[in-house]
Nucleic acid binder design. Structure first.
Lengths: 389, 389
DNA sequence: CGCTTAATCTTCGATCTCGAAGGAAGATGG
DNA sequence: CCATCTTCCTTCGAGATCGAAGATTAAGCG
């Protein structure tokens, strides 16, 4: 493979490729069921996709009472996606194949305050290095098909710019997508980290089409999945951190309003509250350690944070009526946080809304945002290939 | 026409019919653009639809710089839909053609407390009478294609049952759809009234795919439109009336919790608050009259209700980030209500979320729920015809 | 008024998709 | 072990869809 040929992704072929890549279908029969095409047409298209080297047949699947299906997979040589999840102090990045399976994932310390150019250029260097080491299958170079990154702040996905972030000095209005696009002639995806997390998580909740995915880390983020797809609204959907909460005291948030949820329940807020008790932790994960170590102040603070978050979720659960609320982010490992959220939601919501509501910890774990980026990027990559022929 | 023949609505023809009926397309060219079919295929299918008497050509539309399009309409003889909007003390009902245009709409007093059988049977009698008077085009009988009704309480749309309503004694768990279905062998639609209102309103907000439609009447309801489609969640989505509000006093709501929005800001709550001031009104519309007459207590109460509603909306606007909030229901005619809602939302929401947010009064008016019922019913009717061949 | 441009709609042969029928491979059950 | 059922996949003719080319109608403009 030369690494530059286009994917044949127009029309029916593209749909089939998407279904296989998205993990929705593994055999011709499944493709026929999901795509709505006739079985005969599916066979024909699959034949072509195999001929062009994008799909491969690999063994056979489990029988459902008859002949075994012949399993289809994306060819490992079809392409790679480079994805990153930028956090406040660390970045996770890796390479995925087109079906979203990770080849390699690494975590590096990275101070986001160094500014966009420095961070993004360094990130691209790491990508190049990863490609050098993992970007070949046997002797052939596997082509890179897209770049995606999550940003811990609001993003305008159309322009790929960061929009008035609260904890990223120097990044406001920076054209992240454009900057990365100058280095790679490929589709570039820039999206809020909680949104990516939501997409990554959604695949792990197959019967749940409406999801709220909470990211409890340094800040509080939320991604919303409606009917299986990310809901962006006008671009800012999912914010719950600047909602006013019921408290006795009064704190002014960085946004200028008083008593925002973020000012009481974010990892940053908890860390500074702990500091007032003489307990110093450097990362939100340290709070979890303190809780696990049985530090009473930490447990009390985390439980209170859970209660506040839960009270905000109350309103949203009645309104949005999701199938599940998934909690991720580094604080999600703190058991008292989850149980306090559960208690608040189940206590105050309408019975109709909580009847079948599941409130649970992430199933995917720390890679959720990377997998989500892969999932979105695949669509972008296929669209790119089909419009740039 | 015999009035019993099936609509030819399978495959491409059905899609085209839906596009015309839904008001999305008015010419072959538009159909081609929206359906994704080739212009030639569209011409062919439209030809057949005209031959079978469902579509008619009617004059020509405005030129866009070239040949004028030949306008397509649903034939007035294609079918009728009977729709109703059940309120606490009144019912509005009427007949629509398949494109959702009203032939006749009437309002009758109707006490919902008489129980489901009495109300529904009487409603069906009125439908029969309307059909008698308006159900013919020239000499031919136009067939009835579906029945739909809005209910002022929670509805399980799958089963067509009312689910634990707060102000409809005797209706709990009553199978409304089944009851109506016994009288008519037709698709029957039963849906919450605020949801129907939202669908009806959505057509009047063409550039707004994400809408919150508030119904402020005896109770407080809310319908949610996501990406142009009604969001039901697990069936209970859109409830905002049992959210806890920030107040000094403390009131217990009928749901058992304290300080629900409904207990302060619903028409029912406002009426009893007015009664304490010695001002008696019988319907929520009477509150509006009092406000217009300059009764200070009424204005103050309504403004306070608006503020409380606005504060609840704050959370939802940040989270859902809609294009517009539309306020309907009888209280929406009270100017202080709207301005108080606006003030609260614009004051407290994130700038990103309110930047392009429109908060406005209903464009459709009192018939919104009827039109919404028609819109949903059309889909149900086409699906019914295509599965029952 | 004729020329150009633009949009709508139709004609017609090439191509794609469907669905019925049948072959392949395995589960089930005497 | 063999008949029977189920599921998966392919073959092949009928029919639907496409797209290019052309006919039709009309606006814009010198």
């Amino acid at each position: 493979m030369s690494g530059k040929e286009r994917l044949p992704v127009r029309g029916a072929q593209g749909d089939l490729l998407r279904l296989v890549a998205g993990g929705h279908a593994e055999s011709r029969a499944e493709l026929a069921r999901l795509s709505g095409l006739a079985a005969s047409s599916v066979s024909l298209r699959v034949e072509e996709l195999i001929d062009s080297g994008l799909l491969v047949e690999e063994g056979s699947g489990a029988s459902r009472g008859g002949r075994r299906p012949r399993r289809l997979r994306l060819s490992p040589t079809a392409g790679l996606l480079a994805v990153a999840d930028l956090g406040a102090h660390h970045v996770r990045l890796g390479l995925l194949d087109l079906s979203g399976t990770p080849l390699v994932i690494e975590e590096h310390p990275c101070d986001i305050n160094r500014g966009p150019e420095a961070v993004l250029d360094w990130m691209a260097d790491v990508f190049d290095e990863l490609l050098e080491r993992h970007g070949r299958d046997g002797s052939s170079v596997v082509p890179l098909r897209g770049i995606g990154t999550g940003i811990p702040g609001p993003v305008d996905p159309a322009s790929g710019r960061v929009v008035s972030p609260s904890r990223m000095p120097g990044w406001n209005n920076f054209p992240v997508a454009e900057h990365l696009g100058r280095r790679y002639d490929l589709p570039v995806l820039v999206e809020n980290d909680a949104n990516l997390m939501a997409i990554g998580e959604a695949r792990a909740w197959p019967r749940c089409d409406n999801l709220m995915v909470l990211k409890a880390g340094t800040g509080i983020g939320c991604g919303v999945i409606v009917e299986g797809r990310l809901h962006r609204g006008r671009g800012a959907a999912g914010d719950i951190s600047h909602v006013r909460v019921r408290t006795d005291s009064s704190v002014t948030c960085s946004c200028g309003h008083s008593d925002c949820l973020e000012a009481y329940a974010s990892g940053a807020a908890l860390m500074s509250a702990l500091a007032e008790h003489g307990i110093t932790v450097r990362r939100p994960a340290g709070i979890v350690t303190s809780v696990d170590d049985g530090v009473p102040e930490a447990t009390a603070l985390v439980r209170n944070a859970g209660r506040l978050i839960g009270e905000v979720l109350t309103v949203l659960v009645n309104f949005f009526n999701p199938d599940a609320i998934v909690v991720g982010g580094s604080l999600s490992a703190a058991e008292p946080l989850i149980s306090a959220i559960r208690a608040a939601v189940y206590e105050r919501c309408l019975p109709l809304a909580t009847r079948d509501l599941e409130i649970a910890v992430t199933r995917v774990g720390r890679d959720a945002a990377l997998l989500g980026a892969g999932s979105l990027l695949l669509d972008a990559a296929l669209a790119f290939e089909s419009t740039h022929v």
